[in-house]
Design a binder for these strands. Structure first.
Lengths: 152, 152
DNA sequence: TTGCTCCTCACGTCACGTGAGGTGGC
DNA sequence: TTGCTCCTCACGTCACGTGAGGTGGC
């Protein structure tokens, strides 16, 4: 009975609806080890998720949907994330200052890596948007020319 | 011998390298009807692409990679695009003013739709970036607090 | 007790990846 | 003529989709 905050939990269907995915996808991520499978869940028992698990899944979905990373690549990032969480448990229990510093530095690197990927994406998208606007401009010019010609 | 500009053509490997995809992917798009298969290409003869075909493929890759559209969804857009190209051929041959106007209006709608999708993506990416920066901020705060504590 | 949601196989699908074996153009 | 690139099957893979048949909790 340690830190019995009794946080709200969710079933797989609720989580799926909240995040806009199917339950199958969630189970698949668990299969790959992306979601921390409650290793003591017996065969046939319903899966239960807390807010932390939902947040983690949401992060996975962003890395995949927005940045187009493969699940394998996400595992590489998420593994580091998992070890960070594991170390965060250490945080409460055994807060050696050196350990704390290492945890924070690793976490920072991870977030920075993700920020870099997001920035790249934003740059490419901006170029695409410019291109589309140029195309739009030429179309409108030609359309205007057509109307002017009509007006003669 | 009409408009014999003798434009440069490319083989599938060159195109693949330029656009950063595999030749298999290009052939697959052709299979689905996304690329205008030279319908008179006999069995076993090398595929040949002009700049227009390369541009079209590049557009497909952007819609897929940047916006995450399925090939089915792209077919819907590209089909309209194809009919636009078909009508552009009409442009040179039989330029009825009404036809021209219709072509331009349809083209404009298509580009606007794509711009909308790009903007949505940009918005979601911006929110993701903000979130990552906030996370980064709290990490740095805690790290600073740790150093201060150390300093005591 | 009755729905509703969950469970586990397990096969299907989409978008290609990856050879196998053979032919064509600078 | 010799590589190198291309060709066509065709099976494999990744990330799930889609039922089939059965069990569990408000």
């Amino acid at each position: 009975m340690l830190t019995a905050t009794k946080a709200r939990t969710f079933r797989i269907g609720e989580v799926a609806r909240r995040l806009g995915v199917t339950t199958r996808a969630i189970r698949y991520y668990e299969e790959l080890g992306l979601l921390p499978s409650p290793r003591d869940r017996p065969q046939g028992v319903h899966r239960v998720y807390d807010e932390a698990a939902v947040a983690r899944l949401q992060q996975i979905l962003k890395l995949r949907g927005l940045l187009g990373l493969s699940l394998e690549a996400i595992i590489a990032i998420a593994d580091a994330d998992t070890s960070r969480e594991a170390l965060r448990d250490t945080w409460d229990a055994d807060p050696s200052a050196a350990d704390r510093a290492r945890i924070l530095d690793e976490a920072k690197l991870l977030v920075l890596r993700q920020l870099e990927l997001v920035k790249e994406r934003q740059a490419v998208l901006s170029r695409f948007a410019c291109e589309l606007r140029r195309t739009l401009g030429t179309i409108e010019e030609r359309r205007a020319a057509l109307d002017a010609e009509e007006g003669n």
